[in-house]
Structure formats: structure tokens, C-alpha cells
Simulated assay, not measured.
Amino acid sequence: MPYTTEEGGRLNNFAREPKIYQAEPPDAGQQKSYFILGIAAIALVGALVFVAFSVSHIS
């Protein structure tokens, strides 16, 4: 663990910093996967809303 000494002889313990890297934009295959997952999520939410309204209107 990295320790530093401050004024008056106090020790400070700092967390180890993670390695920094630059994010890369998604390639064409990843963009296609994100699009398909987005459509699937919208369909799932739409189906859940439809089921909720169907069940709530049953008398």
C-alpha cells in the first residue's frame, strides 16, 4: 500500500489507482447487437404493459 507522510509525521494510506485507458467506440457488430437488444427490450416492456392492462381490466 502506498503511504505518504504529512506534516507532523502523520501517515496517510491511499487506495491504489486503477490503470486508465481510453474507451473505444463500438464496431459495426457491436452496434448491431445493441440495436437488436434495444428492440427486444422495447418489445418486452410493451408486452408487460399490455399484460398489465389486460389483467387490470378483467371484471
Rank of each mutant, 00 (worst) to 15 (best):
E24Q: 12
A28H: 08
G46L: 13
E6W: 06
F50W: 11
S33T: 14
E17Q: 15
M1G: 07
A43Y: 06
V45Y: 02
E24K: 09
H57Y: 06
V49K: 00
R10A: 01
Y3L: 08
G9T: 05
N12V: 14
R10W: 09
L44D: 02
Y34K: 14
H57T: 06
Y34G: 03
A15C: 10
A41H: 05
A28M: 09
P2D: 03
A47L: 15
D27L: 04
S54C: 06
A52M: 07
A15I: 10
Q31C: 14
F14I: 15
A47V: 11
P2V: 06
Q30V: 05
S56L: 11
P26M: 02
I39N: 10
D27E: 05
Q22I: 06
K19E: 10
F14H: 13
A41S: 03
A15T: 01
Q31W: 00
D27Y: 02
I36C: 04
L37C: 09
G46D: 04
F50R: 05
Y3M: 07
P2T: 06
V51K: 00
A15V: 08
P2I: 03
L44F: 08
N13V: 13
T4Y: 08
L48M: 15
E7H: 03
D27P: 03
G9Q: 07
I42M: 07
H57M: 08
I36W: 07
G38C: 01
N12A: 07
P26I: 01
F53L: 10
